[in-house]
Amino acid sequence: MKDRTLVCPCEDVTTHDIREAIDLGYIALEPLKRVTAVTTGPCQGKWCLSATIALLAEETGQDPEAIGGITHRQPVRGVPLAVLAEHPLAHDDEPEEEDPS
């Protein structure tokens, strides 16, 4: 195995990838996320978000407070679609069955 420093093991994003993206001008978190795929894997940033913010702050001299965070959308853990489909609220928008009589 090659020596690599992984920031995001889900998407195989290395410190090299982050630095390269920063050199290309992606110095805000959301664009950096879109161009490198950091924080977008199955763990949704749980493992890598803090490391990404720290690296971005170190490389660009930005205040971490100003870097902010990412949007954390639901669900925060993997949920099988079949389970979601079972919930009563999933059927709220369905039209009432018409009475044939």
């Binding site: 090659k2 889900c10 195989d12 199955p42 853990r77």
Partner: peptide
Amino acid sequence: RSIKYHRARGPQCFTGDCPGCM
């Protein structure tokens, strides 16, 4: 294995926060 480089992977957190045990 990892998704891109196919590096060997194993669990690193035991709390469901990393991809190493899927």
